[in-house]
Design a protein around this nucleic acid. Structure first.
Lengths: 213, 213
DNA sequence: GTCTATAACGAGATAGAC
DNA sequence: GTCTATCTCGTTATAGAC
């Protein structure tokens, strides 16, 4: 990945001059455009042509910076994964207790009709068929469920949550509720089922407090 | 929908003779082939040509029986929805208590890597953009969440489940866990995250028993 | 680095013969 | 009802000029 624009006019470190010639590099615009289209239409529904048009770049530019559609898509998916991870990390750091942290993650404001930019890719046949393309999706959910499992485990260890609550199973259920909530919302054409699902999950978790607390 | 083959050689009721000429009608094979491909590759990833090849039918046959791709896809999605509904109804009828019924639905054996044939369509941009194509998906999840909400409501009314447990929110969460479980499984390339998520949901529900039961 | 030209192929549908 | 031919457009590149 190259540095993005708005760099210093007088670079203080030795870098290629080309990094400072454009407001935003063409390769950056291609990655962002690809990420948007992958979110909206998935991998099989996104053509190189559409990416180029949205980025305001020609055929030649795209094939100069990337080997092809899958190469650019992988870069775009890695960027989306980074953004989702930063966002989730911020939510998980919000609460004090395990319940508060999980609730902060679940209740984060989301446009459910757009779906999840990372989770969406898991339904794409060409993504699942390619180890290269699936990797960023797998890594994102591995990280997220692991992060939530650690939070639940801490809650059990500290006596906040009841003994016997399985951290891995609970974490998987929490992440699944969010991903499945997107499906329900898009099926219904409404945000409501998503909000119901996450509220339901928060309520189920609230009843897992250790007895006498 | 026409009657399927293996009909009597001497029809006892007055029906068009053509209904008895083939083992399985071409239009039926087209619908089944389309349903399979939609499950595997989604709407944007499925071409009329691929459907025809799988059904062993030519261009002419397809455009004789259906107005085009979306018309055939709608018929295929309605068939898939019927099948899912029958399957879910069987599971929900299994248990005695609300918890048993919900657990029977959640723990049903599924090939998580294949995903849900109905839920999958909710991620497809062309399906969501068309009221016609989205209808069977919306109706299926409306029915399923309504069915589960009624079961939870009965559980609360009978004193099995704690007062204050919201039936609609809980039902949405249950359905979302299953749909999200598919996403996690496909992202991981493994059945495991799906099994964890549904087990986690069953455990969360078990703790919603009314106090003193 | 970016552009245009070209190409081989598939998508999605229509037309008309049989 | 099913077949083959045809059509227009989009996809996913490669080639080479600028």
């Amino acid at each position: 990945m190259h540095g993005t624009g708005s760099g210093p006019l007088h670079p203080v470190v030795s870098v290629p001059t080309s990094m400072y010639t454009a407001a935003v590099e063409t390769s950056e615009r291609l990655i962002d455009s690809a990420a948007e289209l992958l979110w909206e239409r998935g991998y099989v529904g996104t053509s190189p042509r559409a990416i180029q048009e949205r980025a305001g770049a020609g055929q030649g530019s795209m094939y100069h910076h990337f080997r092809g559609k899958s190469d650019l898509a992988e870069a775009a998916m890695r960027r989306s994964a980074e953004q989702l991870r930063a966002q989730a990390e911020a939510q998980l750091a919000t609460g004090r207790t395990a319940q508060e942290k999980a609730a902060a993650y679940l209740l984060r404001e989301r446009d459910a009709l757009r779906g999840c930019r990372v989770g969406r890719m898991a339904m794409d046949p060409d993504v699942i068929a390619s180890e290269q393309l699936r990797a960023p999706v797998r890594e994102t959910f591995d990280w997220l469920t692991g992060r939530l499992a650690a939070i639940v485990a801490e809650g059990v260890a500290s006596g906040e949550l009841r003994e016997g609550l399985d951290p891995d199973d609970t974490a998987a259920a929490i992440v699944a509720v969010v991903q499945g909530g997107y499906v329900l919302a898009r099926a219904a054409g409404s945000q409501e089922p998503f909000d119901r699902a996450v509220r339901g999950a928060v309520a189920l978790l609230a009843a897992q407090a250790a007895p006498g607390r």
